[in-house]
Simulated scan of single mutants.
Amino acid sequence: MRTDDFLEVMRELVAFVRVAEAGSFSAAARRHGQTPSAISRQVARLESVMGVSLLQRTTRQLRLTEAGMAVLERGRDMVAAAQASMRVAEGHVGTPKGLIRVSAPKAFARHVLQRPLLSFLERYPGVDVHLLVVDRPVDPLREGVDLVIRLTDDPPQGMVARALMPVRQLVLASPDYLASHEAIRSPEDLMAHSCLSIGEQERDSRWRFVRGDDEVELAVAGRYTLNHGEMRLAAIEAGLGVGCVQDFVAHDALADGRVVHVLPEWALDTNYQGMAYLLFLASRYTTPKVRVLVDHLVAALRPPPAGSPRPPA
């Protein structure tokens, strides 16, 4: 193959990279709006032009050949470079316009992100937003996502991180439950209560509390364990026991008096809280559309000074 033949198979190279990353022709086709047969033909043509087999096909899976692994490594770089080149001109256009892809955890997207995104879309009619709502780590480069919202205390290296808002897990109970059960004056008192845990990890049944220099860790137990914050809140409201829920999920229930914050002077130390960060590759921020959305979300979600109302989104 002549070295300049790649100009004729750039589309096929992109198709191969998509298939290799997605793990199947059908998954790549669904993700990019094509048919599996069309994707398969493109990969076959690339193999024909290159004169090598890139994929070993079986009825159950695809496996990269040695040549396929080498082509994938370089092909990813070429696809990323092409995408960056397409963004160069856009980055010099003064008016924000175009599509922004954003990913966020499900509960955060529903309870926190929806309102500022709607106000952003109203303010910038030339910008479209594709919101990917998933409770899994998202690779922005691989999945073509411009902005990733992630709850963490350790933002990943190689990405720009803008803090949006702190997130805490609160220990809650309904007023009726508290009125009919033993008083909860210290973390140790929870051992006599039915506690609703998240249940995703073994340590979720051990609650660790911090108050200044004081630390208390204890094993809790209860009749209902579930890893869905809104359902856990509903069970707490129904009087099934004492449970932990993220503060933004519990906000309205607390304001309405449907639940009470138990042990407010103690902080619950858990893996399911931290700072909500807006993550993006440095190059993505150069485009006006991304820059204005980042600034909008940071301003809308930044905690107001003590005693001040949060500014409208």
Rank of each mutant, 00 (worst) to 15 (best):
T3R: 08
V9Y: 03
R11T: 07
A15Y: 03
A15C: 09
A22W: 06
S24H: 11
A27Y: 11
I39S: 00
S40Y: 08
R41S: 08
V43N: 10
A44I: 02
L55C: 01
R57E: 07
T58H: 03
R60H: 13
L62G: 13
R63L: 14
T65V: 09
E66F: 05
E66Q: 13
A67R: 07
G68A: 11
L72R: 07
R74T: 05
D77S: 12
M78L: 15
M78G: 07
Q83N: 14
A84E: 15
S85Q: 13
M86A: 14
R87T: 09
V88I: 14
G91C: 08
T95N: 03
T95H: 04
T95G: 00
P96T: 05
K97P: 00
K97L: 02
P105K: 01
F108L: 13
F108C: 02
A109E: 06
A109S: 15
H111V: 05
H111I: 02
V112T: 11
P116G: 03
P116Y: 12
L117K: 03
L118P: 00
L118A: 11
G126S: 05
V129S: 03
V134D: 09
P137Y: 02
P137F: 06
P140D: 11
R142A: 15
R142T: 12
E143I: 07
G144R: 02
D146K: 02
D146V: 03
L147C: 11
V148Q: 06
T152N: 07
P155S: 06
P155M: 01
G158Q: 12
G158C: 12
M165L: 14
P166Q: 10
R168W: 15
Q169I: 10
V171R: 01
P175G: 11
P175V: 00
Y177M: 13
L178V: 10
E182D: 15
A183Y: 03
E188C: 01
L190H: 07
A192E: 12
I198P: 00
E200T: 14
R203D: 12
R203V: 11
S205D: 14
F209L: 06
R211Q: 15
R211T: 09
G212L: 06
L218F: 05
A219H: 06
A219W: 07
G222V: 13
R223H: 15
R223W: 04
E230G: 08
M231H: 09
L233N: 03
E237W: 00
G239Q: 06
C244K: 00
Q246F: 01
D247I: 01
F248H: 15
A255M: 10
D256A: 11
G257S: 05
V259W: 08
V260G: 00
H261I: 04
P264K: 03
E265Q: 15
G274F: 04
Y277L: 08
L281H: 14
L281T: 06
A282L: 12
S283M: 02
T286D: 13
P288Y: 01
V292G: 00
V294Y: 02
V298T: 12
A299V: 04
P303Y: 03
P304M: 04
P305Y: 02
R310L: 05
R310K: 09
